[in-house]
């Protein structure tokens, strides 16, 4: 089954007529995702890959009954699209967009919580339950159904890790990119809580990076509440203080948020921490 999304999940694509939106609608349909509608203002009535397009999210949700949306909307309008989706009544929102102003995201993140809506991202590759549904931009063919849950702040590094896991015969239950921005919806701890309860997940891989304190909170959670084996890689050991390393959230500030401090907390919590991303599969294999 995996966590948060499965083969029953019905998806609306916000920004479906755009370059990325239409391309990934096709890719998601090919993977088997139930894409039931799309939204682009003033393009209602069109079709994209056989999927009906609506003018608003509220129309799309009431006509299709979808419970999840994925957002491919430019940064200036993306936070507004998150709020629109939450008001329309979906339960999950996946926001792919990179570059949303922090002030907009603070507002949107607080708003979705008041509605009890789960937000993934922004600035993330999305979420996939292999063999069931892919709600995101990841290359579907590298994933394999299995028992390893993967959570990550990054996109391509996740692909790298999943690729080696699959090659080693270690399939995945659900893989979640939580996003590289400083203000995101679902955090590592939320995913760990769900993986703990998920019978399909037997081990977890956590891919963190410098900046912020989500990894620190995850380490504390693992120590207190998590019973399954966790393998960790933290990117950015070579990153200098005060520089943003590509992701808006990947920045060491005043000596806080370094890879070393995160690594030592995970070790203390009993997680297996590897030095290189290419070592992950071997470390996970030890638990099976």
């Amino acid at each position: 089954m995996g966590i948060f999304v499965n083969k029953e999940t019905q998806v609306i694509v916000q920004g479906i007529t755009g370059r990325d939106g239409s391309f990934h609608t096709k890719k998601m349909l090919e993977y088997g995702t139930k894409v039931v509608g799309g939204v682009t203002p003033f393009k209602g009535g069109m079709n994209v890959e056989g999927v009906p397009v609506f003018n608003t999210m509220s129309e799309a949700v009431s006509r299709t009954g979808a419970d999840t949306s994925i957002i491919y909307i430019p940064p200036a309008f993306a936070a507004g699209s998150i709020i629109e989706a939450a008001e329309a009544g979906v339960r999950n929102i996946v926001c792919i967009t990179e570059g949303i102003p922090v002030a907009d995201m603070m507002m949107a993140a607080h708003f979705v919580r008041t509605r009890g809506v789960r937000l993934f991202g922004p600035n993330c590759p999305g979420i996939i339950t292999p063999g069931e549904t892919k709600i995101g931009i990841m290359p579907g063919h590298i994933f394999k159904k299995g028992a390893v849950g993967v959570i990550s702040r990054s996109g391509t590094l996740t692909y790298e890790v999943v690729h080696t896991l699959s090659a080693a015969g270690l399939g995945q239950s659900t893989v979640i990119g939580i996003g590289g921005d400083p203000v995101i919806g679902t955090k590592f701890t939320d995913c760990l809580e769900a993986f703990e309860k998920d019978p399909a997940t037997e081990a977890v891989v956590l891919i963190g990076e410098i900046g912020g304190s989500d990894e620190e909170m995850a380490a504390a959670f693992i120590k207190e509440h998590f019973s399954k084996p966790v393998t960790v890689f933290i990117a950015g050991k070579t990153a200098p203080d005060g520089k943003r390393m590509g992701h808006a959230g990947a920045i060491i500030q005043g000596g806080k948020g370094t890879a070393e401090s995160k690594i030592s907390l995970f070790r203390e919590a009993g997680a297996a921490v590897v030095d290189l991303p290419v070592d992950i599969a071997e470390a996970v294999k030890a638990f099976f």
């Binding site: 990550s152 692909y159 410098i210 890689f233």
Partner: peptide
């Protein structure tokens, strides 16, 4: 997205996480 460092091995990568991990591997 570019940040200059002090070493002599240049790298060019797609994606921020993989780029950081690549630097870590070089080191």
């Amino acid at each position: 997205s570019f940040v200059k460092m002090d070493g002599d091995v240049a790298c060019m990568v797609n994606g921020a996480g993989l780029a950081m991990a690549t630097m870590d591997m070089i080191k």
